[in-house]
Amino acid sequence: MTISIRAVEKQFARYPALRGVSLDIEPGELLALLGPSGSGKTTLLRIIAGLEFPEAGQVLFDQRDVTFASAAARQVGFVFQQYALFRHMTVAKNVAFGLDVRKAATKPARAEISRRVDVLLGLVELGGLGGRYPSQLSGGQRQRVALARALAVSPEVLLLDEPFGALDATVRKSLRKELRRIHNATGVTTIFVTHDQEEALDLADRVAILNLGQIEQVGTPAEVYDNPASAFVCGFVGEANRFEGHVENGRFVSGAVSFPATTASGPKLGFVRPHDLTLSVGEEAGFDLHIDRVIAQGPVIQVEAKTTDHRRIDAAFARQDVASLTAGTTIRVTARKAHLFDPVA
């Protein structure tokens, strides 16, 4: 199903949560809504689900206007951040709920419901735990139950609000793979909200980046990482050293830092990713870094350093490129690639 968000506005008591958001989600896509807290990403997800209603704009499901349709009428599967499992029902009852509450005409037979529950519990690898209560499960297991419950109604779209937010790091990583596997198995259009850029880049087909109630950029993980559309995206997605400076005669200059630039002259914000810094060779123009700390991580060597005017810089080099780096020494580097933006007024 294609979901279209058209110029959606949403205001909470004091602050605007969404300011003219438009977004198209393709059938079968796995899309991440990424942004810091307060960016409006959860609000947008809840508007798609029918749990919030916008002041202006439209939500279209396959060209049908569902802006004010109730959540019950939309046939979406929603996985809540804290799972919202029905605590007085068993796992099986939780999963069956969406089928159980259907009107007699569309309600599957009891045997069919229980067969479907078994299939879904198998899909989320919880076979045999149908008789347990939510309080008897671990966080990761509860998350899987929530997912199975949302999938039970054969939703046209699956919405997940910070699906891994309440889990510890290892469980989080394995469930991430799990979600991708389930998405591939079911093919259901899936939108999830996260504030963790690594999670978004790792999992999603496309990422929509929100800031202050507006969409900054929508694109594949590679696009938003390699070609950030705004200073915010560049700073939020991936790591980057940030410089305030200006471009003059084809060079970006910020205090002691300078590197070649191709943009027009004027004040600019410059971003350089740690691995885009290279050792400068010979007389090539660059700038000096004083190395504070060297961290060897597998094939990568990470360096914490300072410029000559005492600004902190993170750099990363491929191990084979740099024979030996030691703390306390000074190296000369230049930027192989930089992202330059006009400073925000």
Binding site: F61, R64, F68
Partner: peptide, 11 residues
């Protein structure tokens, strides 16, 4: 399934 954009008034 009724998906009409009913009750558009917002209090």
């Amino acid at each position: 399934m009724t998906l009409s954009a009913s009750s558009k008034r917002l209090s």
